[in-house]
Amino acid sequence: MRAARLGWLYFKLGSLTELQYRANFFIQLIQSAVAVGTAIVVLKLVYSHTNELNGWSEPELLVVMGIQILLGGVIRMSIQPNMERVMEEVREGKLDFALTKPEDSQVLVSVREVRIWRAVDIVSGALVLAYGVNGLDRSVDAGDAALFAAMLLVGALTIYCFWLCITTGAFWIVNTWSIIELFDGVYQTGRFPVSIYPGWLRIGVTFLVPIAFAITVPAEAVTSRLEWSTVALALGFASLLFAFTRWWWRFGLRRYSGASA
């Protein structure tokens, strides 16, 4: 509860700052349109040569892409800016300012930054998703929708944990910016259901970088192909990862000695 209040406070603060730069909204709008346009062209190209990709029809793949864009918006709006700030502050020894505050350090470092204009991607992702759902053969009932929302939350949490685990690495390795590039690249694999990938890669984007849980599983909920065993696996994995992340963050903190004067 306290964490939510803190998050809301920083959200308001960050939004007020960002609202000064309204031109950024239009830049974001154009960028988002380009990204969505490209994704749709790719999709059209794929389905001009086939009717289904490993059992996924065109509207179903639109659902996957919509979720990928939407979640990408969440990551770039909140998760990534926060984590980049931690990496930066560890390197410059400025993390002290966060650590000395009388709040849970993990909560604090996870909510301080918000780039609201990047929410444009959340909206455009949702539109692509809605368009895809509209084209599905069978309708999505309330149960599917609720399961989808729940799995999307679990997925976002998993991605957040993954990011924080990597960021905590900054306590040992200073040069972590290349990891951001690495994630950006690997995140692209989420445009397609992970079932199309060969075994070694599928395991990689499921457990190493949890893209399968974040994107494919919610998409399976919408397209009614989600099995309860997958739900259990996703929940179990998310809880384990969350517990590990919490321990790992505290473990890393002990390494931090503050580099500044």
């Binding site: 990709l53 990891i179 690249g185 694999t189 060969p198």
Partner: peptide, 20 residues
């Protein structure tokens, strides 16, 4: 790190077209 991140893009394309 940078190169592995870059590899994801062609691998996705390759897997998609191989599947088709």
């Amino acid at each position: 790190f940078w190169m592995i991140g870059m590899l994801a893009e062609p691998i996705v394309y390759l897997v998609v077209w191989t599947t088709i």
